[in-house]
Design a protein around this nucleic acid. Structure first.
Lengths: 225, 225
DNA sequence: AGTTGTATGTTGCATTTGCAACATAAAGGA
DNA sequence: TCCTTTATGTTGCAAATGCAACATACAACT
């Protein structure tokens, strides 16, 4: 666990909390390390969570599956990311989404339930933790708004362009590398995979974009160099 | 302002903060009441906000407009609601959305910028405020996830059914009243208004739903009475 | 009541899109 | 290396959908 502590100190959630405090905290609440194989579910929609998850290594996707088997990827998280916190911090809501290991992953499960709901005087760094959490959830919020901007677009082409424009802004380049393959990207956009490929091809033919695998270049992009 | 204090005490953000503290707080940070006429913008996309808004009366919509003039309604808020907080609490991000008065409204603008970023020892109730904010932003997060569930649906019919199912769960009834009219609902679903009307009509013909104005009944709904 | 502006309903039409089915390519394991 | 699995590309087709244009209904204001 010791080498994990060093890593955990770099995680935004534990900003401003020193090594001893962190060691004490994790022991005190009974955090447990657990490994998951690819495609294994970490949290399941419908459960009432008591722990947040912190990714020590690997990759986790937050997904939503409906009765028809349609899958939507809501988030794609890598080492250092925290998940499940909204449902804990909002006050014990049943999960409306699932967390699934996108590859073999090592997760630290922290029973934050008590921590978030007990009296604020519990520990001196308790308030720091809540403040960090507020910042993280707020940013997550902004991220969700960005995704909504994509998914509410009326045509697939607009969705693709909006998504690529967001990546371009993040990566500050008109040539961007998407973290998702075709299957996952289609799920993210809320579209059919074959429709996505088809539209990408059309857009390339019309010289709107150029792409190879998961690298895309916006041609005549405005606002980015 | 006195009668506003009574009202503000009922707002979740100020949970656990008593009248004197609240009066002091608002004076200290320089909160200002301002009125807006219908359709007036309160916050504009691109601005870096320094205040959060609290609705004293009226109705405010959080919207996103793109270059083509497509408008998406991200949220529809009434008295007591707070907006703009994610961009303050996440750490001074430029707004990616706008806030617009949906009817004549009275708004309390609270310069929370400093408050959220200054040293935690500022006031004794400062930590209460941050905790409240964390809970609110987390819930907002869950709400955004619900909206994503709707907008990522692959067909308009599924979007409508998902939206109505969510309302049915909230209102615990198979007959629900939507807070949005056709125009706004179409924007919310990310669809064309005429397509929405057409699909609603078809669904009624197929006896999936029944509706009149903004009241909808799910026929053969599962999970609700 | 009359006027104006906005919300809503309706319809034809071209286009987009999901869906299914199949081919090919790439990746991972035995 | 071979085999299996998964990802990706391709295409035909029917259905869904955006769009434009217009009619009607409703609400607000004078």
């Amino acid at each position: 666990m010791e080498n994990n502590i060093k890593f955990l100190q770099t995680v935004p959630l534990f900003n401003g909390i020193d090594e001893e405090e962190l060691t004490h905290l994790l022991g005190c609440i009974g955090a447990k390390k657990k490994t998951y194989v690819k495609n294994e579910f970490i949290f399941l929609s419908g459960d009432i969570p008591t722990s947040i998850g912190i990714i020590l290594s690997g990759r986790v996707q937050i997904i939503k599956e409906d009765a028809f088997g349609n899958r939507t990827i809501l988030n794609d998280l890598s080492a250092g990311a925290v998940f499940g916190e909204s449902f804990i911090c909002g006050g014990k809501f049943p999960l409306t989404v699932s967390a699934q290991a996108a590859e073999n992953s090592s997760i630290l499960l922290c029973p934050f339930d008590l921590l978030m709901h007990m009296c604020p005087q519990a520990c001196e760094f308790h308030n720091t933790l809540i403040r960090n959490m507020m910042v993280m959830v707020s940013r997550q919020n902004i991220k969700l708004l960005a995704q909504l901007e994509v998914t509410t677009k009326r045509s697939l082409r607009e969705k693709i362009l909006t998504y690529l424009a967001q990546l371009a802004q993040e990566q500050n380049s008109a040539t961007v590398t998407a973290p998702l393959g075709r299957v996952d990207l289609a799920d993210f956009l809320g579209a059919d995979r074959s429709s996505l490929t088809r539209e990408l091809k059309r857009m390339q033919e019309e010289d709107l974009i150029q792409y190879d695998k998961n690298t895309y270049t916006l041609v005549n992009a405005v606002g980015v160099k």
